[in-house]
Amino acid sequence: MNANIRDADYSESDSIPAERRRLTPGMVARQAVLLFGVFLALAPAGYMLLTAFKTKEEYLFDKIGLPDALVLTNFSEALVQNPFLLWMRNSAILAIGAVLLSTVIAALAAFAIARMQFRGRDLLLSISTSLMVIPPVVMIVPLFVLYTRLHLMSTFHGTIIIYAGLITPFSVYLLVSFFRTLPTEILEAALIDGASPLGVLWRVVIPLSGPPLVTLFVVNALYVWNDLLIALIFLQSDDSRTLMAGLSVFQGRYNNQIPLTMAGMVMASLPMLILYILFQRYFIRGLTAGALK
């Protein structure tokens, strides 16, 4: 599976055969379809961005045009009156915490599943893999009641455990597939040198696992960052609110100030947009990693 992904990257050659450069009707049609797709993909973001720079009065009369001037007050007002940075920090803590916890647990288990013999191994992998498709909403009610009893509501560690649980089946699945592709000789050589299994995992396997680990980080962090349901239910206090839950409060508070709302949305989109621009290939690779066998 991962071999495929790597191949896919290598085959992205930039050289365009000469026949494809010619301006044929087919080529024009294809370009037209793609340009239309680009327009559709960018229109809402463009609307968001343009509106964020308009004044409330300007928006009343001109909803689609360019802003008269680049008014930054929407941004400053949204930022001053709302703890965007706190929300982002909270989302980041949850995303990083859950991804780290999940990756450590998944790496240990995936190593054993991929490289050791033990009873129940295949069953464990099957169960873990099937859990990937159980919708989170199913687990919420008992966890809500349990967390209230254990005083874990509105705590980061409590919610990190839930998120880690939800993303771990995918982590296990991906790492097992990858660990199975590693050449056995390297591992055996390390063992003969006297390393313990954990030592092999830590000093030999993990250093070789850069690509799948980056993939896991991207996919799982994106999942936690974007989640609304769990955040709404399990992080109810002000100081633990995540960005997505914060946005639901934010839109209700300013639903009569659309330009201000859009300024907030622009700021909320920035962290992921920046990461995307910096690590584009990992995003695209990561999102397809689970699907290609």
Binding site: G97, V104, H151, H157
Partner: peptide, 22 residues
């Protein structure tokens, strides 16, 4: 060592000001 690191991470996230519920 691993579990200690994990535990330390969790404790840290708990003890940072304003992170845990009042």
């Amino acid at each position: 060592k691993t579990s200690a690191a994990l535990g330390a991470g969790l404790t840290l996230s708990q003890s940072l000001p304003a992170l845990a519920r009042t």
